[in-house]
Amino acid sequence: MSTTSGEHSATLVVRGYETDANGHLNHAVYHQYGEHGRVETFRAAGVEIAPLAAAGLGPVILETTVRFLAELRVGEEAEVTTAIRFGTGKSFRMDAEIRRGGTVCATLTGVMGVLDHTTRRLVADPRGRLRALSADPDGFDRVCGVQEPAGS
């Protein structure tokens, strides 16, 4: 069984305190922008943190890498486009591009999972668990892609 990917975008404006001595966005802030994109993607999919926590679950980042391609400066608008891709295992991909207009300023690659707070282990079928807790399962499918039947 495989799953097609879905995309979601969020917009941010670079703030002065996020920049470094060179006048561009600090390297660590790119990770924060990626996190903002991930949270907004889950929200657009109808998955809020409070219901996840009440169910004893939480998203975890297992791996993340940033590739810096162009500067972002104070006052510039940045669009964070996040693509999520589920497969058949306990982890899933959540990658992002941070753009200024048509220019890709950074790419973020990431591997995530859903942690069971009781067992401290990743849950099997993270897509299914997240979708079951979504306030909008159809919206979840739009944002996160549609699961293809086995044998497709």
Rank of each mutant, 00 (worst) to 15 (best):
H24R: 11
R38P: 05
A70S: 10
G58K: 08
V60A: 09
T119L: 14
H24W: 09
A70K: 07
R73F: 07
R93M: 05
D20N: 15
E97K: 05
L133P: 08
L72N: 07
N22Q: 15
T119Q: 06
M112W: 02
R100C: 04
L25C: 09
E71G: 03
E35R: 14
L69R: 10
E79K: 07
M112H: 12
L108M: 11
M112V: 01
G46T: 08
L72A: 11
I49V: 09
R121S: 05
G89P: 05
G110V: 04
G113L: 05
P59H: 09
R93Y: 09
G89A: 14
T107A: 06
R121W: 01
R73A: 11
G113V: 04
T118A: 15
L69H: 04
V104N: 10
L69N: 04
G87H: 14
V123N: 09
A132L: 03
H27A: 14
H31S: 12
T81M: 11
A124T: 03
L69C: 02
A132H: 04
I98N: 00
V66W: 00
A78G: 05
V104W: 09
T65N: 04
E63N: 13
V47K: 02
A28Q: 03
R85T: 15
E63A: 12
P59A: 13
Q32N: 05
P126I: 09
G58P: 03
F68W: 12
A50R: 14
I61V: 15
S91V: 14
D116I: 12
A124S: 05
G102Q: 04
A53T: 01
A44N: 08
A45E: 13
T41I: 10
D95N: 15
E79W: 00
M112Y: 09
V29A: 04
N22P: 07
T65M: 03
G87R: 14
L62E: 03
Q32M: 07
R100H: 01
A50S: 12
E71S: 14
R100G: 00
G58Q: 10
A96L: 07
R120S: 05
